Simulated assay, not measured.
Amino acid sequence: MSVAVVLFTSDLRVHDQPVLRAAVDGAEEVVPLFVRDPGMAAAGFDAPNRRAFLADCLASLDTGLRERGGRLVIRSGDPVEQVCRVVRESGARQVHVAGGVSRYAARREERLRTELPAAGAALTVHDAVVTAVPPGQIAPAGRDHFAVFT
């Protein structure tokens, strides 16, 4: 039986979810995964209102998955280590994730590409999920990225 892992990051929905759709289309079994990253707390993203909002979003995501016969797996720790652990536990050969535009997301993707083969899986990054143009494809003259200050 073919198994794929979907790593949910910022797009916590089941309706019209291209990453989840790709995993369902390409595998017989899908493991939906969210990793509570202690790095987010260290970066100052652990305010009580954000924790409450995330808890509500994860509960809604789990409800939507259960309505479709699945359930959300939630782990805590380093995201790459946890993804590799779930891959080994499930026998998954593919991991799907939405491409991110932040430096943090790029580093996570780079680490996943490096470490997943040892766990027996490959990474598929779905670039068109958060932007109309893949991150890094367009940049201002003389720069490698756009910077926005408010």
Rank of each mutant, 00 (worst) to 15 (best):
A98Q: 02
E110P: 06
G142N: 15
F8E: 01
P134Q: 06
H145Y: 12
P140K: 08
H126Y: 10
H126P: 00
S90D: 05
D46V: 11
L58Y: 03
V31C: 12
R88M: 07
D37H: 11
G39R: 15
A119D: 07
G64A: 01
D56H: 15
D46T: 12
S60T: 10
R51Q: 11
E67I: 06
V83S: 06
P135M: 05
D62E: 13
E29K: 14
E67T: 11
A47T: 15
C84N: 01
A22F: 06
H126W: 08
V101D: 13
V129F: 01
V97F: 01
V148S: 10
M40H: 12
A23T: 03
T9H: 09
T63M: 11
A118S: 14
V14P: 00
L123W: 00
E110M: 06
C57D: 15
A55I: 11
T114V: 10
Q17H: 09
F149E: 04
G120M: 06
V19A: 02
P48R: 07
H126A: 02
A106E: 13
L58K: 05
V86T: 00
P135R: 03
A141N: 11
R71S: 13
R111Q: 07
D56F: 10
H15S: 10
V133M: 02
D37L: 11
A128K: 11
A52G: 12
C57Y: 07
R103K: 12
R103G: 08
L20M: 06
Q94G: 00
E110S: 14
R13H: 10
V19I: 06
A122Q: 13
V130C: 00
F34D: 09
F34A: 08
F53S: 13
T124Y: 04
G77H: 09
R93N: 02
P32C: 07
R88E: 14
F149M: 04
D62R: 11
Q82P: 02
L7V: 06
G44T: 15
E29V: 07
E67G: 09
D127H: 13
V87T: 02
A105M: 05
E109I: 01
A121Y: 03
A42V: 14
R107D: 07
A105Y: 04
A43V: 10
E89R: 08
P48W: 09
G69N: 02
G39V: 14
A92H: 00
G69D: 05
G136K: 07
C57S: 15
G39H: 15
R93T: 09
L65I: 05
T63G: 12
A147T: 13
V86I: 13
H145S: 14
A147Y: 09
R13L: 08
E109M: 01
V83D: 04
A59P: 03
H145I: 08
D62T: 06
G69W: 00
R66Q: 15
A42P: 08
R66W: 13
R68F: 09
C84Y: 01
P134I: 09
A141F: 08
V83N: 05
V125A: 10
A23E: 00
R93M: 05
R71D: 14
H145A: 14
G77D: 14
S76N: 01
V73Y: 03
D46N: 14
E29C: 03
R21P: 00
L33K: 10
V87P: 00
A118Q: 12
G77T: 12
A132N: 07
D46K: 12
R21C: 02
S10L: 08
D62Q: 14
Q137S: 13
